[in-house]
Design a protein around this nucleic acid. Structure first.
Lengths: 202, 202
DNA sequence: AGCTTTTTCTGACCACTGGTCAGTATTCTA
DNA sequence: TAGAATACTGACCAGTGGTCAGAAAAAGCT
């Protein structure tokens, strides 16, 4: 037990070291920018060793993405104040801002999750956790008649497309002469939400 | 003269052959998927020859992107019926649909133009032609008081972000369980435009 | 015609990539 | 301490983008 623990402890430590070094480099220049050899050199082991912990580059970055997105899901879930009932439309706007902010803070993970083409994969691609959370709030908006008649998925996808648009443009075209970025983000989100609202009563 | 012409004719022909073969391959799997060697093999020349016509891979694909986007600009410009005055908001919606359609038809060019990270470039990135066209129509919407008070660039960027969002998601996540794609595109665009409108008079 | 210059083109070469694997070094077990 | 299990290295593979000396071909000139 204790003996095995020592070995496994080292193993876990190296795994974390790899992940952290990878995250750092990876968030700078994106997926293609970092090589396994380069990564190994930073850590101080042979590049072969990395493959003892991760099947390939994709799996390594998949791990990072998963970690990052667990963080996003947490952030989104925490937006709903416990106990208090919150206007779902307000919640949606808050979630939108949190989503964009997350993307800008984790551009590498964002790129990998939503932008990178996976050469092999023709898999049907299940909706991710964040999408399900979004869908839940949208369902509430529709159930409470805050939204006009529209299907849950249609509304959710309209909103996702919108926040993804501003997020990815700000990540990948950072040197474009943007108007004030904060205001722009807010405008984009408000705009998308407003369009889905039911005619204001009265 | 005539002698030089013969040589240059061959040269131009090869150039076009390269571009066309590149476009075909490139539109399938994106920038990273195609190698210069592979390309040369398809054409039937050594990969070194390609560098006689294009400085590097980036320049080659830059040419393709330019060609594609010239096409987009044409399509957008042609939307305005000659002579007739057209409601600028209607025009905007039409342009939005044309933009998305263009992206879906030229995913490779779209990827290169708006998504790929250029490792070297920290250049300020001038707005492209299509953006300027968009800006013109938006300016008209504002001048004619069809839009609420908002700066031209802010409104233009809100619209661009929106159409980019749906375009890039449909390109890069084609296997997501989308609602009806056509309707979704229309909803996204209408939604964005609606949010910018002035309160309906009366 | 020939001879020379200019242009086109090839294939070997460079440093790099992701990934594998036989052989070695280390650690655990008994 | 001997033997089994694990961790690790570094050479190796096929591929990448890009370069360049030298071969081949075309053009210009007398």
């Amino acid at each position: 037990m204790g003996s095995q623990t020592l070995r496994q402890k080292y193993r876990q430590e190296l795994r974390r070291t790899i992940l952290e070094a990878a995250r750092e480099a990876f968030e700078q220049g994106g997926y293609e920018s970092l090589s396994m050899r380069n990564l190994a050199e930073r850590i101080g082991c042979s590049h072969g060793s990395i493959y003892l912990h991760f099947k390939d580059k994709e799996e390594l970055f998949d791990c990072l993405v998963e970690e990052s997105f667990a963080g996003l899901a947490e952030v989104l879930a925490a937006l709903r104040p416990p106990g208090k009932k919150i206007d779902p439309v307000v919640l949606l706007r808050k979630a939108g801002r949190a989503y964009v902010e997350f993307g800008l803070r984790n551009p590498g993970a964002y790129e990998f999750a939503f932008v990178l083409r996976r050469p092999g994969a023709a898999h049907p691609e299940k909706p991710h956790h964040a999408y399900k959370l979004l869908r839940g709030v949208v369902a509430q908006c529709i159930a409470e008649k805050r939204f006009r008649r529209i299907s849950i998925d249609m509304a959710s996808q309209v909103l996702w497309a919108t926040v993804h648009g501003i997020t990815s443009l700000l990540i990948f075209r950072p040197n474009f002469p943007w108007a004030d970025k904060k205001k722009l983000i807010a405008r984009v989100i408000d705009n998308a939400a407003a369009g889905l609202l039911a005619e204001s009563p009265g």
